[in-house]
């Protein structure tokens, strides 16, 4: 087989995207744990950890540009590189949302939650599953899995709507809870965006494998 060196770099690129995805997945989990435990020390660490993700994104982008410039990839190779370039942008934004959640955690501080957090952790669980599954779909070029993951996004949207209704009801009854209530709404919004970005990633995986642009949801 010709181009063994090139093949190694392509598989190295895939590994790095996968690694970045795992880092983002962990960061979101850590950020959520800090929120639920109101662990301010852990929340304060999230931003620094996100810097590593940003750095890896730049590294992967550099490698993609290098491969495009020097290797003139075509067909499946080109689609993989194009997909990688788009996927890392989504992953980077997801990492930013983990940081946003940590910021909200720090703002809430040790103040007791205005309601037990039930749907928000559920949203985070869905996000975690979606990310994990989408990374597997990416690694295995699994179109069917990528399509299925998008269905989970609908569940996240439903939960998000429920959080909004619940919190708005609480605020309507007691305006004194407006400050924390609005912060919880932001968290639901960040998780909902994370799920959307994961759906984008699935679209890129479908393109990578089939060459067809397909909008999901």
């Amino acid at each position: 087989m010709l181009r063994e060196g090139f093949d190694k770099r392509i598989s190295g690129l895939k590994d790095k995207v996968f690694q970045m995805g795992n880092m983002v997945d962990s960061l979101i989990s850590e950020s959520m744990e800090a929120l639920l435990n109101q662990d301010l020390e852990a929340a304060a660490q999230i931003e620094k950890k996100d810097d590593k993700i940003d750095k890896l994104e730049m590294e992967i982008e550099g490698e993609c540009m290098n491969l495009l410039t020097l290797q003139q990839p075509l067909a499946g190779d080109l689609r993989l590189i194009a997909a990688a370039l788009k996927i890392i942008t989504d992953l980077e934004r997801m990492g930013d949302h983990a940081v946003n959640i940590a910021h909200v955690t720090l703002e809430i501080g040790k103040e007791p939650f205005i309601k037990p957090l039930i749907d928000i952790p559920k949203m985070a669980d869905y996000c975690h599953n979606m990310i994990e599954e989408s990374l597997n779909a990416f690694a295995n070029a699994d179109v069917e899995k990528a399509k299925k993951i998008a269905e989970m996004d609908e569940e996240v949207d439903k939960l998000s709507d429920r959080v909004f209704e619940d919190v708005i009801d609480i605020i309507a009854e007691n305006k004194g809870l407006l400050k924390q209530g609005s912060k919880l709404l932001f968290i639901a919004r960040y998780l909902e965006r994370i799920a959307d970005h994961t759906t984008n990633i699935c679209e890129r995986i479908i393109y990578m494998v089939t060459g067809v642009y397909k909008e999901i949801n």
Binding site: L2, R3, F6, L74, A75, G76, R79, T210, V212
Partner: peptide, 15 residues
């Protein structure tokens, strides 16, 4: 050059 149908085409154009 973006989505060849035959694997032999893909293998040739990608070197």
């Amino acid at each position: 050059f973006s989505v060849p149908r035959d694997k032999r085409t893909e293998d040739y154009i990608t070197g």
